Amino acid sequence: MTDGHDQNAAATSGGLTRRDGSAAGARLRVAIVGGGFMAEVHSRAARAARAELVGIASSSPERSAAAAERLGIERAYGSLDELLADDSIDVVHVTTPNAVHAEQASAVLAAGKDVVCEKPLATTVSDAEALVAAAEGRTATVPFVYRFHPLVREARSRFASGQAGRVLTINASYLQDWLLAAGDDNWRVDAQQGGRSRAFADIGSHLVDLVEFVSGDRVSRVSATKRTVFAERASHAGITTEDAVAVVMETRSGALGTLMVSQVAPGRKNRLFLEIAGSEESVAFDQEQPETLWVGRRKGSQVIPRDADQLSEDAARLCVVPSGHPQGYQDAFNAFIADSYAAVAGENPDGLPRFSDGLRAVRITDAVIDSAESGTWIEMGTNE
């Protein structure tokens, strides 16, 4: 630390015992499936949580070996089956393309291991429902990591406590530009690998999860329209997955909202923005500027810094460095993994996104795409 200030203890899982209770204080033994960018993010978070990274499996033995070398992981498994046969592994992180999440997460659970599975949890509602059922009695989490920004927790606490009043309106967007040009390409544009939805399943799922998490309210129905800007890209033709989606929504409490999701917005790298107006105050959070939360009032609006001394208890818990030392995406991811491992050890961290939350996101994604394709409002079930 550069200034010697005290700070609240962050969420960590150092010294967690393994599920079988052996070797009190032993480090969790963790393996990763997949070798791309998200595997790197997960590996950094696992190390920050003091887990022992024992192995990785990618799409082939050669790719596994390359990923193990690149990420500094002890062992390269030749296949997922080989990895799952290792009884010493406690937790498996699934970081592969969307279309195989359900099959692989199901196999992890069947092998008696806890699981962290990238979103979307599955590409169909039925597969996501089956995973929720299979995860009964185990720790199974989905990285909706924007929940772990301290100022997101502060915004949530203002609605949960009643300080912000009842929810009136919601204005939210998630904008990127990494698929702006026809020459930009990725496996996600292929419905066979990514599922029927791309932009909404990929980043819109984060957005709607945050809307419901912060507001404490549930989306009740949606009306959407979508656009595929490029039907052909560098390596794909006949593309049907969407580049952008616009959604009008209503919540169970009667609030109105709009969501804009785009991967073709010039200059926007990863701009998740959320503003929720309550009857007493509004809160606004910008993921690209995560060190402040705007709180709007008819009189006396203010900008709240990420300062543990000024925040709710749950928000302060996630402040891992003193105010003025910026925290970001990897810090949020680290906190999510730390809380996931705490759950493996038998704790019940508040706000931890589990497979039921992943199922909720898949259901909303389906409703959004169904609405865009039918041109009608789609109702969400009252029991969802």
Rank of each mutant, 00 (worst) to 15 (best):
L168W: 00
A107P: 02
E275V: 02
I364P: 04
D177R: 07
D114Y: 04
G328D: 11
R218Y: 10
V368G: 02
V132S: 07
V41P: 01
V33L: 14
R158P: 02
E250P: 04
S58M: 04
V30L: 15
V208N: 03
T123D: 04
F37A: 12
V248D: 09
G4Y: 13
V145T: 14
S262V: 08
R354A: 14
F336T: 03
A51T: 13
D286N: 15
E313Y: 02
I239P: 01
E291T: 11
A24G: 13
I239H: 02
A231L: 10
L293E: 02
L293A: 03
L293H: 01
E250I: 03
A315K: 05
R47K: 12
I337T: 12
A342P: 00
A23P: 01
D202S: 14
S323H: 11
V167C: 09
A224R: 00
V303F: 06
E52P: 00
A65V: 11
T228H: 01
V108A: 10
A332T: 07
M260H: 10
V247I: 15
E103N: 09
E62H: 12
V320R: 10
P305N: 04
A23Q: 12
N98R: 13
A26Q: 11
E280N: 14
G351L: 11
I276M: 07
E242H: 03
G14C: 14
V261R: 07
V245Y: 06
G165Y: 05
S282I: 00
D366F: 02
A10R: 13
A128L: 10
T139H: 02
V132W: 04
V303S: 12
L53P: 04
H325E: 15
G4M: 11
L293C: 06
A284W: 02
P349V: 01
S161D: 12
L256K: 07
I364V: 15
A85R: 12
F148D: 02
G216N: 11
A99M: 04
E69R: 14
H5E: 13
P266I: 12
R218T: 14
E242F: 02
A110L: 06
L83A: 06
S356H: 09
V219C: 04
E62R: 15
P305C: 00
G35D: 06
A182P: 05
R198D: 05
R271G: 00
G21W: 09
A65L: 12
A255W: 06
G296H: 09
Q104D: 10
T12F: 06
S157K: 03
R268E: 13
A246H: 09
D185K: 03
R158Q: 11
A155H: 03
D184E: 10
E129L: 05
L16W: 00
R138C: 08
S22C: 10
A372Y: 00
I364F: 03
A234V: 01
V321D: 03
